[in-house]
């Protein structure tokens, strides 16, 4: 459940580390051997990505591509999956839109609600603080599917006319928020802990209320962690599979990206040309990778502050 958190934090740390490293000289022979080792590692890391990219560009669009360098290159596979990724009559745009709706709901809910709670845990002393923090930590330890059966049963009970909460995008978003919110609280709290208290005290002396200091002092300073937490919420929704597959399977119009992906590798795999599967995988992964790299700077600035406190 906490995987993306530590992951992104460390990924950004890695990028920060690319700027450090000792200077010095190596004998030519040793340098050569080390370079060969590093290149070999880079090849293993890059190979699956290059392979998938090559397959997605295979102009022959055959079911079973057989070479890393297909003759020529085309975007046929991309055009095909954008029009209709699976055997079901549902377009990529529809799938992406459904995933985006879930992603935005999770992201918005977990960050706004989480920021308030994180502030209380970070700055205020109150009765029950320890118990509540332990409760939230305990939930963090659980896998996302820890409450699968009860959520399935409970959400299904909400029926308004033809609308059933469980078979709606909103229901999926609720179920995922259950595991995303504790993470948001914990992540934001960790960052708020590193903001010096003096800044708030100055505001309090000027007569600002708790809520005003939160809104005018803390929130602007916490922008990096809010952006990053929102991004994690978004990824959780964008690639969500477990609840969507369980809740939305009956209505192809509510299908999400990962459900279509599952269809492509599942029982129909033999009938799905691999170039289309590859194109689809890239279309799903690329936005995440781009935003990741774009957000690096934010994540690093969060880390830099966190680093002072150790």
């Amino acid at each position: 459940m906490t995987a993306p958190a530590a992951t992104a934090r460390l990924a950004s740390q890695a990028l920060a580390e690319t700027r450090t490293g000792g200077k010095g000289h190596l004998r030519f022979g040793r340098q050569l051997v080390l370079q060969l080792v590093c290149i070999a590692i880079a090849v293993t890391v890059l190979f699956p990505m290059v392979w998938i990219l090559a397959m997605s560009l295979d102009p022959r669009n055959i079911a079973r591509p057989d070479s890393l360098f297909p003759p020529g290159a085309s975007l046929d596979a991309y055009a095909k999956v954008i029009a209709q990724p699976t055997l079901n009559p549902v377009s990529f745009i529809r799938l992406a839109l459904n995933s985006v709706i879930i992603a935005i709901l999770i992201s918005a809910a977990s960050v706004t609600i989480g920021a308030f709670a994180a502030y209380a845990f970070s700055r205020l002393r109150f009765r029950g603080r320890e118990i509540l923090m332990i409760a939230i930590l305990a939930v963090l330890m659980l896998p996302a599917v820890a409450a699968l059966a009860p959520l399935f049963v409970m959400l299904g009970k909400f029926q308004f006319g033809t609308f059933n909460l469980r078979s709606s995008l909103f229901g999926v978003a609720l179920a995922v928020t259950a595991s995303q919110l504790p993470f948001a609280i914990w992540n934001i709290k960790g960052y708020l802990d590193t903001i010096p208290r003096e800044l708030e005290e100055a505001a309090t002396v000027d007569g600002a209320s708790r809520f005003q200091t939160f809104r005018l002092v803390i929130l602007p300073l916490a922008t990096p962690v809010l952006a990053v937490t929102a991004f994690f919420g978004f990824i959780a929704g964008w690639t969500e599979f477990q609840f969507s597959f369980l809740f939305l399977i009956g209505d192809t119009n509510s299908w999400t990206l990962s459900m279509a992906l599952n269809g492509m590798v599942g029982q129909y795999a033999a009938s799905t040309p691999w170039s289309q599967f590859s194109a689809f995988a890239i279309l799903v992964a690329l936005p995440v990778m781009v935003v990741y790299i774009f957000l690096q700077r934010y994540i690093i600035s969060g880390l830099a502050i966190g680093g002072v406190k150790g």
């Binding site: 890695a14 990028l15 890391v45 690639t239 990962s258 992906l261 799903v284 992964a285």
Partner: peptide, 13 residues
């Protein structure tokens, strides 16, 4: 920069 790439790909992919 290359070695960190697997981390930024969604697990389902």
């Amino acid at each position: 920069a290359i070695y960190i790439l697997p981390v930024v790909i969604p697990p389902i992919i």
